[in-house]
Nucleic acid binder design. Structure first.
Lengths: 232, 232
DNA sequence: ATATCTTTGTGTTATAAAACATATTTATTC
DNA sequence: GAATAAATATGTTTTATAACACAAAGATAT
């Protein structure tokens, strides 16, 4: 019955990959798929480690980040259910260049990369899945390089808020960001100090672009925010 | 005899991909492979265009760059013979997010992406080739995000010089960079103004880390340069 | 419940890097 | 080969943002 429950989890949540596979392949995944629970802020894997698993976020939220100069952290990518990560380094045949941790309590599935590689070897659709994902991520990273280096603080923070919205969406009120994130993470997402993230957030409140209640951020003028993000 | 010459060019210069293919696949490539010559600074493709070709740099040098805020340009990647580029956007099913141009007079081969996709469909080794390339590039871009946002000017310029060395190597004297690049490009590579690139270069000269003769840059203390690049 | 630690919020100061200005040298063009 | 344009060089000013300092509010532990 564990097998049965697992199959349900996998077939429902991993639907995009799942539909690509045949019966035998599905069985191999079920046999090697391990469910893990991570607490808030728990590390999933760390920079410089050797990649071993394909990670699949089933529920919760996760982030990929990189420790930089003088204790500064840059959040590189946000993960939502159901997304896959942790495979790049294995494919590149190198250690991880970034770390991953849970933003909130999360459930993840882990599949040995050796198995994934084997599945790819015999299933071209799976190969295409990863070619597509890698290509999209690479485009995103290249765009991010320019956004983070050339935009001013207001533009970077506005962009970060839009990234949060695009990744996790709004609550049922259609305006409150569906993520509970501290100011420090917000700063690490938009390449600035925590002080400046707080200050700039206050600016946006004064300009009636957002409403802030603790960590709850309500976006009341999304077009303006996108405008600030674009030209700034 | 055109076919014969082409086959020679392809089989010698594209060796890494070439060895992966069988006779029929090789013939299909030869039939659709087009040689193009680009002048210095000529655009190969531009941001927002739809990707059509896999480009292969056979000789010369090229750069991928992105126009940013207020006319500022960021060089994202340098291309040397024999490297492939221009395929990411096609795989991501989106327009180009960056542009490509020749740094010096260059010869390139163009292969329709539809053909490449078709070849991948029936040749898993070719799929692996692209999975590997994309993975390496993505790791590079993620690392670059942190380097460009967190390092100071000296560190960024030192890194850029090391990037030039790693990509194009030294002349026969084992210390002069094998690339003739203007200060503006150097600045665009390391995310700073041209003035600051010039100024910082002068600093390095005064510190006896490099010798500059016009655009010829001779690196006389590579370990020091790597050190500045690492902690700066 | 009280103490302790963490996060948030603001004001002030310091500074790295851009912006601007202007020579000077090096390429291009006619 | 003179004229013009572009690239390089360097000094000065301005500014965006980090760094620092400290208070207040929340969260966590004892």
């Amino acid at each position: 019955m564990i097998k049965k429950a697992l199959e349900k989890v996998i077939s429902e949540d991993m639907s995009d990959i799942w539909s690509i596979l045949d019966g035998d392949e599905k069985r191999r995944i079920i046999d090697h798929f391990e469910i893990h629970h991570f607490k808030k802020n728990q590390i999933i894997y760390a920079e410089k480690e050797d990649p071993e698993y394909l990670w699949c976020l089933l529920s919760g939220k996760a982030k990929l980040f990189k420790d930089g100069v003088g204790g500064r952290v840059q959040i590189l990518r946000l993960i939502r259910p159901v997304q896959y990560f942790g495979y790049r380094a294995y494919f590149a045949n190198e250690p991880y260049v970034s770390s991953a941790s849970a933003i909130e309590p999360s459930t993840l599935g882990a599949l040995p990369m050796s198995l994934v590689a084997d599945l790819i070897q015999h299933n071209i659709d799976l190969a295409w899945f990863f070619i597509h994902e890698l290509s999209r991520n690479l485009g995103g990273s290249d765009t991010r390089i320019v956004n983070l280096t050339q935009k001013h603080i207001r533009g970077r923070l506005a962009e970060a808020l839009m990234v949060l919205k695009d990744n996790y969406g709004y609550e049922d009120d259609n305006s409150t960001l569906r993520i509970y994130m501290g100011r420090e993470d917000l700063a690490n997402l938009s390449n600035m100090t925590t002080s400046n993230a707080i200050r700039t957030l206050t600016c946006f409140v004064n300009e009636k672009i957002i409403i802030v209640d603790g960590r709850r951020i309500k976006i009341i003028n999304e077009p303006m925010l996108r405008k600030i993000s674009k030209f700034g």
